[in-house]
Amino acid sequence: MRSGIGTRILGTAAVASLALLAVMALVITPQDVNQLDAVRFLYIHVPLATLMYVAFGVTAIASALYLWPRYRARKWDLLAGSSAEIGVVVTGLVLVTGSIWGRTTWGVYWTWDARLTTTAVLFVLFLGYLALRRVGGDVDARAKRNAIAALAATIDLPIVHKSVEWWRTLHQKSSILDEETFLHPHIHGSMYWTVMLGIGAFLLLFSWLLVNRYRLAKLEDRVEDEGLERAIAERRAEADAMTGAP
């Protein structure tokens, strides 16, 4: 299974848009009045945070589809796992970029603010999910277990978010997904478009990674199946040789 032409175009587009993002973020956009150059971190931090929700969203939807008897198929489990794996890496990067940005802007690496805490819990929740995926067993049983675990973790998120939001809030309000600011952006024009470009570029990157990770998951699956069949065939041949059967 070589990657198809579509995947390669996707990959090229992702690299090209990331290069453009780098130029926009590092050269063209101005410094921020308060944050100075630290603002440039947001051009990757905000897209990564968006990606995190997309990735876990895909995991949740694929898991729900797997549990839905009408749509039950092995592919949904593989897709959920592939997306969650990327999601965990992205969440790690969100925490790292956020911490570095926080150190320069707020003066601390970590504060127990609502969104940071939610993200940290999210990270651990899906680390657990990935650990569960690694546990062996019958293929269907495993897939069902994974799907239930993914959904149980997902329905927890709004509650985690609400609880830590009440607990304490320091993080600045969401500045892009707010309807009013979406229509009337108050952040500087080129900065706004750079963040949007960043989201687009990272979505392309995510799609490309997901396609490839999913393909790899399918290959792993096939190796497992074929390895088992081959082992059975070999044992059978051994037995035949020993008993002298034809």
Partner: peptide, 10 residues
């Protein structure tokens, strides 16, 4: 513990 503790954090 890895699965349950983050879920019951709230």
């Amino acid at each position: 513990p890895l699965l349950l503790l983050p879920v019951v954090a709230p």
